[in-house]
């Protein structure tokens, strides 16, 4: 269940659309729910969102599984989403992915045993001029080098402690 504050946020989002068009709030509310309930969308979370927006659960499942930013399974605390499309590949993203794999001892799509890191490869994030890059939470980390990756990993570990 959302807190009072988040419920108000949901109300505010719904108010952006004409009366009866509250389904339009689905993507923003799913983002909120994912942030709030552990970084992924369980069936219970989606059913809850459906009830908030007065739509059927299947409408939520259909949408949640369409968009790549919604996690349908639990993920690590920090998700490294490294871009590997053309422009990043041209600037060495494959080396960065290999480096992270070795450093964290996980494969793409896997989570470290301590549940701290998940490594994903993603398609173009729109930061081609600052390649190689990755998304970490809300922000982009750009011009990646092995040294920068080390720094980021340390930073995440420090946050966890």
């Amino acid at each position: 269940m959302f807190s009072e504050e988040k419920l108000n946020k949901v109300k505010e989002i719904i108010a952006r659309y004409p009366q009866g068009k509250q389904k339009s709030a689905l993507l923003p509310v799913l983002h909120l729910a994912q942030e709030e309930f552990g970084g992924w969308l369980s069936a219970e979370t989606m059913d809850y969102v459906a009830s908030l927006l007065q739509i059927t659960p299947i409408e939520v499942y259909e949408v949640a599984t369409f968009y790549s930013m919604f996690n349908m399974k639990p993920v690590g605390k920090h998700v490294f989403e490294v871009c590997h499309t053309g422009p990043c590949m041209l600037r060495g993203s494959d080396n960065i992915i290999d480096y992270i794999k070795k450093k964290l001892n996980i494969g793409v799509g896997e989570t470290t045993q301590d549940g701290l890191f998940t490594l994903k490869t993603v398609e173009c994030l729109g930061a081609c001029g600052y390649a190689p890059m990755m998304q970490l939470g809300k922000h982009f980390r750009e011009h990646l080098t092995p040294e920068k990756v080390d720094e980021i990993i340390n930073e995440c570990r420090a946050k966890a402690n």
Partner: peptide, 12 residues
């Protein structure tokens, strides 16, 4: 006029 910002969720 009102302007609202809506975020997508990962779909080219």
């Amino acid at each position: 006029l009102e302007i609202y910002v809506q975020r997508g969720a990962g779909a080219y």
